[in-house]
Nucleic acid binder design. Structure first.
Length: 262
DNA sequence: ATGGTAGAGCTTCTA
């Protein structure tokens, strides 16, 4: 069995229903994982997605903030939706395909402005969230699993436009990279995007605050596709659809794709 | 040190 999977921080699924439909129509991934739906589950516009062949959805949502969903052409059974670090936020959903492959979809907390948990509670929550993920994967080591989402951390020097300028900026600080690495190691996760594209700068997010985002290109790779070692070798065709960032009224994130031949 | 933009839902928070 072969399937193509995409992950996209959509920054309001209701406002950008048309952009989701465009991506599904033009690229037809088998599975699309969304983050920052900013919508209660019952207000996600599922009918339009169903009409395009995406008959299955599992999701967690809340009013105004956060929210994650998995849209799929194939049946997907919900197997978990954890509130890591007990924040009361809709940031995780996991589903299982008919062949047994488990897909985890995450929206890791952004962490606020200051990278210091003594003065910025949100930064502490981000680190605690990653620690809770680490502990969960340590206790129950995943197999035949894929982890995607907006992890809100760009771990490598070539995942940001300027490593030296970014090292004190939330999303690229050493303490965040260490927490992400510990969580990755606990699950045995392989970074599929970097397995396929090991060289060169890769970004999936460009701030709205830069009007000439394309020319300035001050991006970060915040959105990731990982897999457990038993299936990571089956992944190929990784790509980031930068063009979506230039669509009308875009999300500030571009979708990330990978194909698995299992 | 600061401000720049965007979305939800309410007059402010979050990113």
């Amino acid at each position: 069995m072969s399937f193509t999977l995409a992950t996209w921080n959509i920054n309001s699924v209701r406002l950008r229903e048309g952009l989701v439909a465009r991506l599904l129509t033009e690229e037809s991934p088998d599975i699309l994982c969304l983050q920052e739906c900013k919508s209660p589950v019952e207000k996600i516009p599922v009918d339009g997605f169903r009409a395009l062949g995406y008959e299955h959805m599992i999701a967690r949502g809340q009013k105004g903030y956060n929210g994650v969903a998995i849209l799929s052409k194939r049946p997907v059974e919900e197997v978990a939706a954890y509130d890591y670090a007990s924040l009361g936020h809709a940031r995780h959903i996991a589903g299982r395909l008919e062949d047994g492959t488990v897909i985890h979809n995450f929206y890791v907390p952004a962490g606020g402005d200051k990278p210091d948990r003594t003065i910025n509670e949100k930064f502490g929550q981000k680190l605690d969230y990653l620690t809770a993920m680490r502990d969960a994967f340590h206790a129950d080591r995943p197999e035949r699993s894929i982890l995607v989402g907006d992890l809100n951390i760009a771990p490598r020097e070539d995942d940001v436009w300027d490593h030296k300028k970014m090292v004190k900026v939330v999303s690229h600080t050493p303490v965040e990279v260490e927490h992400l690495g510990d969580m990755q190691e606990a699950g045995g996760w392989v970074d599929v995007t970097r397995k396929d594209l090991p060289e060169g700068r890769l970004y999936s997010w460009w701030s709205y605050r830069s009007p000439d985002w394309d020319a300035a290109d001050k991006g970060r790779r915040l959105d990731h596709i990982w897999a457990t070692p038993d299936i990571a070798g089956a992944a190929h065709g990784s790509r980031i659809l930068r063009a979506c960032r230039g669509w009308q009224q875009p999300s500030d994130h571009a979708p990330v794709f990978a194909t698995f031949d299992l």
